[in-house]
Design a protein around this nucleic acid. Sequence first.
DNA 1: GCAAAAGTGTTCAATGTACACCCATGC
DNA 2: GCATGGGTGTACATTGAACACTTTTGC
Lengths: 235, 235
Amino acid sequence: MCFLYNNNMLIKETKTHEVTTDVVIFTIKNSKLMVLLVRRANEPFKGRWAIPGGFIRLSEDLDAAALRILKEKTNVQNIYLEQLYTFGDPLRYPNSRVITCAYFALIRSDDLELSFEDSTQITDVQWHKVNQLPSLAFDHKEIIEYSLKRMRERLELCPIAFQLLPKKFTLTELQYSYELIMGKKLDKRNFRKKVLSSNIVKELDEFSKSTSKRPARLYSFDNITLNSKRGHFFS
Amino acid sequence: MCFLYNNNMLIKETKTHEVTTDVVIFTIKNSKLMVLLVRRANEPFKGRWAIPGGFIRLSEDLDAAALRILKEKTNVQNIYLEQLYTFGDPLRYPNSRVITCAYFALIRSDDLELSFEDSTQITDVQWHKVNQLPSLAFDHKEIIEYSLKRMRERLELCPIAFQLLPKKFTLTELQYSYELIMGKKLDKRNFRKKVLSSNIVKELDEFSKSTSKRPARLYSFDNITLNSKRGHFFS
DNA sequence: GCAAAAGTGTTCAATGTACACCCATGC
DNA sequence: GCATGGGTGTACATTGAACACTTTTGC
C-alpha cells in the first residue's frame, strides 16, 4: 500500500507506477539480423518470449540499468547503447501500471559470451531472426519494430553497423550488414566509394583466409564519433 | 511505505520511483523564440523557474499526461507534441527518485489564451527568451538545451515551424522563424525556392496589411505530414 | 522621390545514382 | 581452366550554396 502525492491530490493507491527498462539487443549471426529474447518465467505472459528487461533500481541511472540488463544477458561491454523511447500506455501491462524506458543495443557476434550458447537444448534466452519473431509479450513487438526503424535512421547518420561486425572485416561483410539492417540491396561500387571516402575505416595489410575464393582485404574501423548525442559507446 | 518487487528481490523502501512529465513549450513572441516557465511554489527549488510538469496519473498515457500539462498552462490544443527523452539521473531530484519523461511542444502565439497574460504583474507563469534563461530548477537547463537541439533536427525533416506561426503568414515571417530556431541566417532566395518547391505552403490571394512597406503575399500551410513517427499533431 | 521590405534566376560544387567488366584465387 | 566472389571508374542527375538587382508601396 502506497500513499502517493499525485497531481496535487494525495491519493491512496494499492499500486504505484513501476518503471522498467527493456533492451532490444541486436546482432548479426549466421548472416541474419537477430534480436535477443528471453522466455518469461512468470506471469503475466508466462512462457512467452520477451525483450530482456528489468526494474530500474532506486539509485540507478537509466543508462546504467540498461547496461546492467545487457551485461546480465550477454556479458558484453563496449557496445552501442541508445535510449529509444519510453512506452507508457496504461494498458500495456496487465493489472499493473508499468512504464518502460526502452533502449536498443548493438553487439558484435564475436564478443558474445553467452553461457546458454553452449547448450543445444532449448533455454530461456535465445537469438531470434528479426523477420521471424515469435509471438511476444506485452507491446514488445511494437518496441522491436520501432527499434529497427530507429536503427535505420541512425545508420544513415553514423556508422553504428560496425558494432555488429568483428574487429576485422571485409567491405563485403560491412555492406552485407548494412543491407541486412536497411532491408535492401546496395550498389557495391557506390557503397565502397562512400565508406572509403569517409575516414571511418582503416585498410589493413591482412586478407581474409579465403574460403575457396579470392581473399578479400580486411579493414578495421577508426575515428568513430557519433552524430547523435543520445547514443553512446560504453566501454 | 511501499513494498516493491525490484530486480528479483523483494525490497522494502520508504520511497519509490515517481514519474513525472515535463513539457518544454516553445513559441515565437515579439520576434523571439520563447519558452514557457513556471515559478515553483514548493520545495525543492521553491521560487526557482522550471519547465511546467506534473505527475503522471496511474491510468494516464504519457502523451495524454503531457497534453494535460500543456492544456493546464496554455489552454491550447492542435499543437505539435513529441516525446523528447526520459531523464533519470538518480541525483537529478534532491531527496527523491523522480524520473521525468520530457516532451516538447510548439504552439502558435496567436492561439494563446493564457489567463496570466492579461495581468501585468509578475505571475508564476511566464514566457522567457531561450537565450536569456534564468537559473532553472533541477536539470531543466539541460532539458531545454536538448529540446532545442531536437527541434532543430526536426525542422530539417519536417515543417514543424509552421506550428509557431499564425495561420496566414508571409514567407519572410516563415524564414524568420526558421532563423530563430536554427540560430543562423538563411539565404532568402534559396529559402523561398525550397519552401515553394516542397508543396507544404499554399499561396493565398491575400496580402499583409503593409506596415508602411510593400505588402507581402500571405501563405497558409498544407499537406503537413510528419516524417517522424514520434511527433504528432494533437487536435 | 526615397526608404524599406518584397520578390526573383543563374552558376557552380558536391553528392548520390546507375551501370559492367577484369582480377585473383581454390579447386 | 573455370567458377566464385573481389575489386574498380565514369557519366549523369539531383541537390545545396553563393550571389545582386528590380519592384512595390507608404510616407
